[in-house]
């Protein structure tokens, strides 16, 4: 939860599953974060550029533009945003490449939601 005087941090959720987006929103708003949602990497790209979130939570496999493609496109035009990847994919780039794209943590689905909340708190601390 936010401490008094602490600025509200904004988190962008990029995930094609509507129920999971709903879960993330409920969880993060309960923790005091402001939440924006995108259904795919293409929407996510547009929202990062227009809303400047403090943290991105992104799935990998999505229609139209996947999470990695979105992060690569972002890295080409602006400094990386601290990002948390939630994925069921089994062939991700190595840690160094992910770090260059701003990925601070990868969660394999399914995962413990309390750990995700903690990861978001840590990710927004530096932003």
């Amino acid at each position: 939860m936010l401490r008094p005087g602490e600025a509200v941090k904004r988190v962008l959720i990029v995930e094609d599953d509507a129920h999971l987006r709903r879960m993330f929103r409920a969880l993060l708003e309960n923790e005091g974060f402001e939440v924006r949602e995108a259904e795919d990497g293409s929407q996510g790209l547009a929202l990062v550029l227009s809303e400047a979130p403090d943290c991105i939570i992104t799935d990998t496999m999505m229609p139209r533009m996947d999470g990695l493609a979105m992060l690569r496109r972002l890295a080409a035009v602006r400094p990386p945003v601290p990002s948390i990847m939630v994925t069921a994919a089994f062939d991700l780039p190595d840690d160094r490449q992910l770090k260059e794209l701003g990925v601070v943590k990868v969660f394999g689905k399914p995962f413990a939601f309390d750990r995700l909340v903690e990861a978001v708190r840590q990710a927004v601390q530096g932003s």
Binding site: L20, M23, F24, L27, N30, A88, F90, K109, P110, F111
Partner: peptide, 21 residues
């Protein structure tokens, strides 16, 4: 097994977490 099942399982975990609260 490695992808399609993962999201509904994750949703269950998330709903469970919210219910706990």
């Amino acid at each position: 097994f490695e992808h399609d099942l993962a999201t509904p399982l994750t949703n269950l975990q998330g709903a469970h977490y919210l219910l706990k609260m």
